[in-house]
Design a protein around this nucleic acid. Structure first.
Length: 462
RNA sequence: GGCGGGGUGGCAGAGUGGCCAUGCAGCGGAUUGCAAAUCCGUGUACGCCGGUUCGAUUCCGACCUCCGCCUCCA
């Protein structure tokens, strides 16, 4: 029985989807004006695991992840780069897809873009205006009237009068209440604009998610996710917009992931202390990044450091070594109570709000068992390895072939390696240990590690 | 000021009222020409102070301290 921590109620709740067997989930994606950084990776991987796990439990999952392709930062960046908005956003959507692929992310069922949902956005704003949840200012902006929505603050558990509004940022004097937020921004000359009954402009940031999510998933849907920094005001505003417009409950389970930190500080664009995914990929594979991310709980903060990534790599390597050393990977024909216990435990810990660190510990225990069976019972080893890989797939891990993980090389390099290994074998036959060790060291300096096993010498990349 | 989340062995990171987390690193052993890989064994860990309890890292209270949100941010 799956239990999910719901930010709305601030407690773990048993998960029951609205429609049995089906899950509708919306995850806030990114604004495409720059490369994705490790913080985006944490969010994307965390919810990728959620989707994978739900599917593994037999749910039919509709997974929506939006792309914000129009907003102030995009406009600014396009101007700064002297390129069109379309060129800029297309470029970074392409980059995002590359990053996503490297991380092994499943492609969302739908990836709606704000600019493609203008009619739905306009319709929702109109509904809000009609019910006087919104007002138009003299300058042609449309604002949401926060005072009119009685549940405002229900998600972030903030009391309106306790918010220090305007402490850090100037308040627009056209607002009735400083907390009111923009639904539609009137266009200044030269800015991209769409026609609306109340004047040309573009949507505010929050409205697109309310419009797209309800359009793609229904006016009430199961799970809405995103980074913890989106909880307020973004998700709070989404609730206000959607529930005022539809007069129905918006989302049933709200999930928020913790941040990546660096030097005890949040990694963020505004602080400028971020590493892009592609930067980190130069040194570590996407699978290592994934392991690094899920080795801590999705709601915790995660400290970014080279050392931690290194440890993730070593842990992952251990699992791949286990798969490499097993002769065959085939499903066990007979039921094994001992094996079933591990499977049960894996599902149990994942059922507890997606406890991936503990799930990984189960995988490592399985790996130990496989290694142990390897010398005593090959059939069992094959069967347990099968399960190890199957469970790992739910986390998006161990999807490569071990040879791929360890032995990638160009044909020329492979030839050199094979040649050196042959020379070393000869030296060993002649018991010229010094010569043999020298060759081994030479290969090691090339990043190639040798292992002598059962009369054979195998190599792998260190 | 309000709200939320933390402080666990050398590092990372789960968790629990009394019994194993797990990985990496270390130490000892098996194996190996030596290694590597693997297996076995191995650690007086739970911020501080009180309280409840037969027993608390785990429950309660106070304190110290760190991080996040209250602006755009995954």
């Amino acid at each position: 029985m799956l239990v999910i921590y719901n930010s709305l109620t601030q407690q773990k709740e048993t998960f029951h989807p609205l429609q049995p067997g089906q899950v509708k989930i919306y995850v806030c994606g990114i604004t495409v004006y720059d490369y994705c950084h490790m913080g985006h990776a944490k969010s994307m991987v965390s919810f990728d695991v959620v989707v994978r796990y739900l599917r593994s439990q037999g749910y039919q999952v509709t997974h929506v992840r939006n792309i914000t392709d129009i907003d102030d930062k995009i406009i600014q960046r396009a101007q700064a780069n002297n390129e069109s908005i379309e060129a800029l956003t297309e470029r970074f959507i392409g980059a995002m897809n590359e990053d996503a692929q490297a991380l092994g992310l499943l492609v969302p069922t739908v990836e709606p873009r704000a600019t493609q949902y203008m009619s739905q956005i306009l319709a929702m704003i109109q509904r809000l205006l009609d019910q006087s949840y919104a007002y138009i200012t003299a300058s042609g902006d449309v604002y949401y009237r926060v005072d009119k929505f009685e549940h405002y603050g229900c998600l972030s558990h903030k009391k309106l009068d306790e918010l220090q509004v305007g402490k850090r940022v100037d308040v627009d004097e056209q607002k009735e209440n400083p907390l009111d937020f923009v639904l539609w921004k009137s266009a200044k000359p030269g800015e991209p604009a769409w026609n609306a009954p109340w004047g040309q402009g573009r949507p505010g940031w929050h409205i697109e998610c309310s419009a797209m999510s309800t359009h793609c998933l229904g006016e009430t849907f199961d799970i809405h996710g995103g980074g913890a920094d989106l909880l307020f005001p973004h998700h709070e505003n989404e609730i206000a917009q959607a529930e005022a417009a539809t007069q129905k409950p918006y989302v049933r389970y709200w999930m928020h992931n913790g941040f990546i930190q660096i030097n005890e500080e949040k990694m963020s664009k505004s602080l400028g202390n971020f590493f892009t995914i592609r930067e980190v990929l130069k040194k570590y594979s996407g699978e290592v990044l994934r392991y690094f991310i899920i080795a801590s709980h999705y709601r915790s903060q995660l400290n970014y450091s080279d050392e931690n990534l290194q440890q993730a790599q070593e842990s992952l390597t251990r699992l791949y070594l286990t798969l490499r050393d097993v002769n065959a990977i085939t499903e066990l024909t007979e039921d094994s109570a001992a094996l079933n216990e591990y499977i049960e435990r894996f599902y149990q810990v994942m059922d507890d709000d997606f406890n991936t660190p503990k799930a990984l510990s189960v995988l490592h225990e399985l790996a130990t068992e496989v290694n142990r069976f390897n010398t005593t019972d090959p059939v069992a080893a094959a069967g347990w390895a099968f399960v190890l890989r199957k469970l790992a797939h739910i986390l998006g891990l161990l999807e490569q072939r071990p040879q791929n993980y360890f032995n990638q090389s160009s044909t020329e390099e492979a030839a050199i390696i094979e040649q050196l290994i042959a020379a070393r074998i000869q030296a060993r036959v002649e018991k010229q240990w010094q010569r043999a060790d020298q060759i081994r060291d030479q290969l090691l300096s090339m990043g190639i590690l040798l292992e002598d096993k059962e009369g054979k010498t195998v190599w792998r990349r260190k």
